[in-house]
Amino acid sequence: MKNKILMKGNEAAAEAAVIAGCRYYFGYPITPQNEIPEYMSKRLPEVGGTFIQAESETAAINMVFGASAAGARSMTSSSSPGISLKQEGISYLAAAQLPCVVINVSRGGPGLGNIAGSQGDYFQATRGGGHGDYRTIVLAPANCQEIADLTLEAFDLADEYRMVVMILADGFLGQMSEPVVLPKPSGKTFSKEWAVGIGNKNKVASLILSPEDGLTKHNYVLKDIYDRVEESVIKYEEYMIEDADYILCAYGSSARICKQAIQELRAQGIKVGSFRPITLWPFPYKELKKATEGKKRVLTVEMSFGQMLEDVKLSVNGTIPVDFYGIPGGMIPTPEEIVERIKSYE
């Protein structure tokens, strides 16, 4: 209890990055993630690191590109509109197999939208987001402790697979404060023989014009990595699944609303459990399928019009009915609304 600190989600992410050995942060202010650059501007110089408030989100992600190409652990953070701007750089990072961590403390959209938490960026996060045939690992925390733990782990995953790892949080998670026990560094080390500036005369590039099938071959190299990630990097949480008749499927903030709804439904004698994907890509297709076997129905709950819903349907693949409840635009579903929907199945 003594080592618990009450931290904002944004601060927990920033400090966890520092613990992970990230010494280069580049970002541009946007609500509701400003505590991350603010924290880094103070904290990184204390540990010999570099903070730059870039001139734009595009510049920031390209500074990350440079620092990562130079072999350093580097990150940026933003919120939805800013993440859209970073997609150019993310595609280039993916192509050049450069590891980095990108945090999206998402807000309501489309466009400038609003600054409330939202889950409207699921498609963008899990389907690549930028141009081309690539993937990013997407981790979705649901509380401040998990923001810290997953951010720390994100740096190891990024280095292990030489991929962009995105933390997909939302405004509520970024702004809320909860007790956090700061994680310990994993101690894993990664060779970066491919980096520039270490005397190897290396090239970090994504343009492959020749031979004719050069780019195709490179895409297969990436595909092999993505296949390995799909085999090895799956995270999810099950809650009261075993005897449940109905399964709520939600991630991040909406998964917490679901948990409360489950407690209320269980108190009324209705058997409900939940399945919370933590890796949104790779999505735990097989695990969700297994968790829903023999159940009466799945209710997907999102703060959007239903984006993860498509993955849930792909997973369940028609074996049981999949329903959806959600609100777009920065509103959050209430436990009562979820309770009502589940009770309508009885």
């Binding site: 390209n62 590109f65 440079g66 620092a67 190409a69 190897n200 290396n202 090239k203």
Partner: peptide, 27 residues
């Protein structure tokens, strides 16, 4: 970078100074 025998990094269009900034701060 095919013609100069150096470390080479290819930047997105217009982003070379940002990429240079990231590299220079590390090295």
């Amino acid at each position: 970078y095919d013609y100069l025998a150096l470390d080479g990094v290819e930047a997105a269009h217009g982003r070379a100074p940002a990429v240079a900034t990231g590299i220079k701060r590390v090295h």
